[in-house]
């Protein structure tokens, strides 16, 4: 078999099932929704198929820009914290003896096999005014603090929800590193830190990027945590989209917001793929 024929066959065998699936069940539905952008909301919801550019002009509004700003801040901080916690965790899991690796890995996702709402309730019990943390602080002669229903609580909730999405790709990236590389570096007199900086980190950049993307994007688009832990007092992009689609039943404008979000995401995704392929 000639190499180029092998390549083409390979491309077909590996790419076509997944891509077909994505085209039918992702692209077609997405284009359907995004095409509403061109039309108008019916008086009582639904879509009236008269072309208009109104949905785009409505996007440029200081109100929505401020929402984007808040979302960037919250999602950015969440991602940073997730990386700071997630990287050492993934790193240590990867060093564990083989039989403990899977256990540690499963332990990262296990809390998420319980229902979302009661996990959020549990956080409320921990953090609220009469809650556990405040009672503990009170025993130490501190507090009570307002730990809940603010942006800090939103970040905490998002971090909690998406931390596994950081740990798992990082683990997959770190686990394949050859320990000999680090040993070689150490033998050559490099400190642990510079070994990390010069050897380990550059080789795990793809995992870092994937993890950051997995945490940043859903944090940016989340709407339940801002409502339940943020007390509904902050609006994120996800809240906007949900409000337009569900409450206002304004699908055309909801689509326009989505289109704007998708545009940002595509830029992020392409940048991610560009950096990952260079690294």
């Amino acid at each position: 078999m000639s190499p180029s024929r092998g390549r083409r066959l390979g491309a077909f065998v590996f790419l076509s099932p997944g891509l077909t699936y994505l085209v039918v069940l992702l692209l077609v539905p997405l284009v359907l929704v995004l095409s509403y952008t061109l039309f108008q909301r019916g008086r009582f919801g639904g879509v009236v198929y008269e072309v208009t550019g109104e949905n785009f002009s409505r996007l440029i509004d200081p109100l929505y820009l401020s929402v984007v700003g808040t979302s960037l801040k919250i999602a950015g901080l969440t991602t940073l914290l997730a990386l700071l916690l997630g990287y050492p965790t993934a790193y240590l899991i990867a060093q564990l003896p083989r039989k403990w690796k899977t256990v540690a890995l499963v332990a990262v996702v296990l809390p998420f096999w319980t229902n979302f709402i009661i996990r959020v309730y549990a956080w409320i019990i921990l953090l609220n005014g009469p809650g556990l943390l405040n009672s503990g602080l009170k025993a130490l002669g501190l507090g009570p603090y307002e730990l809940l229903y603010n942006q800090g609580a939103i970040i905490l909730g998002l971090l909690y929800s998406y931390l596994p999405l950081m740990v798992l790709p990082l683990y997959a990236a770190i686990e394949r590193l050859d320990p000999q590389l680090r040993e070689a570096s150490a033998n050559l007199g490099a400190s642990a830190f510079s070994t990390f900086r010069k050897v380990t980190l550059p080789l795990t950049v793809p995992g870092v990027l994937t993890g950051c993307l997995f945490v940043f994007v859903p944090s940016f688009g989340n709407f339940v945590i801002p409502e339940m832990l943020g007390g509904g007092k902050s609006v994120m992009v996800g809240n906007l989209i949900r409000t337009e689609f569900l409450q206002a039943r304004d699908w055309p404008f909801g689509s326009a917001l989505t289109l704007a979000l998708v545009a940002v995401l595509v830029v992020l995704l392409i940048a991610q793929s560009w950096v990952a392929r260079r690294a």
Binding site: V31, L32, Y36, Y49, V51, G53
Partner: peptide, 15 residues
């Protein structure tokens, strides 16, 4: 702003 009547199937057609 221009407005034109289109059929109901337009989104489908675009897709």
């Amino acid at each position: 702003m221009f407005r034109t009547r289109f059929t109901r199937r337009l989104p489908a057609a675009i897709a």
